[in-house]
Amino acid sequence: MIELKDITVRFNRGSVDEVLALNNVNLTIGEGEFATVIGTNGSGKSTLLNLIAGDIMPDEGKVILDGKDVTRWPAYRRAVILSRVFQNPYLSTAPDMTIAENLLMAWFRGKTRYPKFSLNRALLKEFRLKLADLEMNLEDRITNTAGTLSGGQRQALTLLMAVLLKPRILLLDEHTAALDPKSAAQVIKLTEKFVSSYRLTSLMVTHSMKQALEMGTRIIMMHRGRIISDIPAREKELLTVDDLLGKFDNIRKKEKLSTEILANFRRQYA
């Protein structure tokens, strides 16, 4: 479903600040797979997701989604295939528009919009039903603006918007990181529910070792723009947090890196 071939991404090319954000990355994720992505700050996780979404064009390599070479497609075109949830709840909804109108925007994901009035009673009813599934009491506030919602409510709404049209691919970039623990738990619950019931091919960046271990079928560990470890479902089931840290330590030794990095990693994930 997702296929990355020899991908290299550089920022600020040619300047002193040049960053090699993705370094010859190859990755294939099959249909229905749910992979979590972990790694230290700046290791290139967001860049990887942005690359798949089309916000960033690779300097080298190819992006193939759903069998189509989309390397040169702009982001909005890829929305036909994939949808996404950002870390920042403010980025995913239009604050001055109502919940219903926001959902309407998602209702047309990847479709042409005409000067028609699709937000009729029937559609509103459908939206209400779906909102009720979120268990956040949003169904009664359908005419409130998104700007009046809490972060958790917004993120739940965003998730609903993302899966409203059953995308082929779902990209989640630390989408619970900015939430309080209770909302985060609810959003994680919803994520699992949607992913499993719709059988979505998903990539989820997370800083929670627990989430990485408990969710998904595969763990991808990144470091310095490279995928340093790719743990398949079989291996993952037996894995503990310490195993993961150990794995990272091994790599560190191999790469002759300072222990500081490990400490860093431990701080973030433990």
Partner: peptide
């Protein structure tokens, strides 16, 4: 017009370009 699907999309474009392009709209 501004209340229609297209009009609302225009509003969303100004309101949150990141969101609307994630919804497959060319800002």
């Amino acid at each position: 017009f501004l209340k229609s699907d297209l009009g609302l999309t225009m509003l969303a474009t100004g309101n949150n370009p990141t969101m609307i392009s994630a919804q497959g709209v060319s800002t």
